[in-house]
Amino acid sequence: MNLSLTLTINGETREIVLDDPRVTLLDLLRERLGLTGAKKGCDRGQCGACTILVDGQRINSCLALAISYHGSSITTVEGLAQGGTLHPVQQAFIDHDGFQCGFCTPGQVMSAVGLIAEGQTGDDPERVREAMSGNICRCGAYMGITEAVIEARGKMSETKPEKAA
């Protein structure tokens, strides 16, 4: 069985040979590639802590069989900041206290980046709440999260126009 695959991770193309067909993208990143930003909160697609972008779309990496994603381009939270500059979503999460313990935060941040790219919510807090509901925050930082998404979206749309909803 051929368990080799090519992935572009945070801009870097990598040839990977899996030791086991069962490996999920999440466990590949966390346990084999040293990218522990994405978190395992439930491992069953029920919490969103493992959210990453695959080909620009946010997904739960815990329910993604790594071998099946051959040829994909992946962005994790580690790949978001450019140099020393935080992504607008990251900065907005800090400014609006959109987290407490920080465990769900990489997933929230990646989900927010995906949400903004999807261009469906505008700056309607209700739409943002709904669109962020796949990311559970047990500390209850939802107020800050919603504010942060709206602010980051606004800042990002100042620099590049959002796709029409």
């Binding site: 697609g45 329910l63 949400l115």
Partner: peptide
């Protein structure tokens, strides 16, 4: 149904 992440996948 589900969440945005699941619907994307």
């Amino acid at each position: 149904g589900a969440s945005a992440q699941l619907r994307n996948a």
